[in-house]
Amino acid sequence: MEEPIIQARDLGICFAKGKQKKGRVKDLFVRRAANQKGVAAQDFWPLRHVNFDIFPGDAVGIIGRNGTGKSTLLRLITGVLIPDEGYVRREGRVAPLIALSAGFSGDLTGRENVNLVGALHGMTNKEIKAKYDEIVEFSELEDFMDTPLKHYSSGMKVRLGFGVITQLPHPILLVDEALAVGDAAFKRKCQAVIAGLLKEGRTLVFVSHSEGDLKKYCKRGIFLDAGTLVTDGTVEEALDSYKTAEKRDADARAERKQREAAAKAAAEQAAAPALVPGAVEAAT
């Protein structure tokens, strides 16, 4: 039986409200200090009790509303975040199309940043040299490779980052809304590159709000809601679950507004001055 390339078991991670997840040791001290002061812990679990297996060559769309743990899940897979419960394991290295300018230094040139980021992701000097021309051609930054990155626009940084990451030979590709940036021509180039990587048999975990992109790249979908895995099936099934949850919440909001409006009207009526019998006749 084929072994999963990514496996999650009872996976969960906890954040303190209003604080970023800095690190396990520091977090322990923060919580301990809060408890000593009698401050009630305000923990938030963006993900909890999550279980799934992803197999080599799978293309899986992670679907859910904002704040439901999609990007957090990708960061757990990469190892950037450490779970508080359970575990996530992966076999093989990750090419992360998440923060495309991560690892870049503003004081270094584009050329130097290609070497830096490539090395950070495990590429040898020989591999970087062999791929350098392709990276530059893709990013269309031939005239700026000897310019310090601090003079690049955000779009130029994204182009360079995408060019480097997609040259990594790693078997797992994580994409977090990377196709939502850039102009139409750049998006088409990104789409062509990802399609090519999938044909090579790479494993894709794809976070997107675009139903079209999800259906284009993914056969399987995982729908997350309120930090839990609700649906793990075809991408169409996961999208249907998402739409059902959206409708349910919209109906609940409409019902709540109706109740609030009725309560306000009742309160205003109760606060209105009562008419004294005969007062109108006396006034006339």
Rank of each mutant, 00 (worst) to 15 (best):
residue 257 K to M: 14
residue 228 T to D: 08
residue 255 E to R: 13
residue 235 V to W: 00
residue 253 R to G: 05
residue 252 A to K: 15
residue 240 D to W: 05
residue 235 V to C: 02
residue 241 S to V: 07
residue 237 E to C: 02
residue 257 K to P: 05
residue 259 R to A: 15
residue 247 K to S: 11
residue 236 E to T: 12
residue 254 A to M: 10
residue 234 T to Y: 03
residue 248 R to V: 09
residue 228 T to G: 10
residue 241 S to K: 06
residue 237 E to I: 02
residue 234 T to V: 06
residue 247 K to A: 12
residue 259 R to Q: 15
residue 235 V to S: 01
residue 228 T to Y: 10
residue 251 D to Y: 06
residue 249 D to G: 04
residue 248 R to D: 11
residue 231 T to Y: 00
residue 234 T to N: 01
residue 256 R to A: 15
residue 240 D to Y: 07
residue 228 T to L: 07
residue 259 R to W: 12
residue 242 Y to T: 05
residue 253 R to F: 12
residue 249 D to T: 08
residue 234 T to I: 01
residue 243 K to P: 02
residue 228 T to S: 12
residue 229 L to M: 10
residue 228 T to M: 09
residue 257 K to R: 15
residue 250 A to T: 13
residue 227 G to N: 05
residue 229 L to N: 06
residue 259 R to L: 15
residue 250 A to D: 10
residue 230 V to K: 07
residue 231 T to V: 12
residue 235 V to L: 04
residue 233 G to S: 08
residue 231 T to K: 03
residue 234 T to G: 13
residue 227 G to V: 04
residue 239 L to F: 07
residue 227 G to Q: 09
residue 233 G to C: 05
residue 259 R to P: 05
residue 240 D to P: 00
residue 246 E to G: 04
residue 249 D to A: 10
residue 258 Q to E: 15
residue 236 E to W: 03
residue 237 E to W: 01
residue 233 G to M: 01
residue 238 A to L: 09
residue 244 T to G: 08
residue 247 K to Q: 13
residue 233 G to Q: 03
residue 227 G to T: 07
residue 241 S to A: 15
residue 233 G to I: 00
residue 236 E to G: 03
residue 254 A to C: 04
residue 243 K to T: 08
residue 232 D to C: 04
residue 248 R to P: 03
residue 242 Y to H: 08
residue 256 R to E: 15
residue 259 R to F: 10
residue 236 E to A: 13
residue 245 A to C: 07
residue 257 K to N: 13
residue 243 K to L: 11
residue 247 K to E: 14
residue 248 R to I: 02
residue 236 E to V: 08
residue 234 T to R: 02
residue 242 Y to Q: 05
residue 240 D to Q: 12
residue 243 K to N: 11
residue 246 E to Y: 08
residue 239 L to S: 02
residue 227 G to I: 01
residue 240 D to F: 05
residue 253 R to K: 15
residue 254 A to P: 01
residue 251 D to N: 12
residue 231 T to I: 06
residue 228 T to N: 10
residue 245 A to T: 14
residue 254 A to E: 14
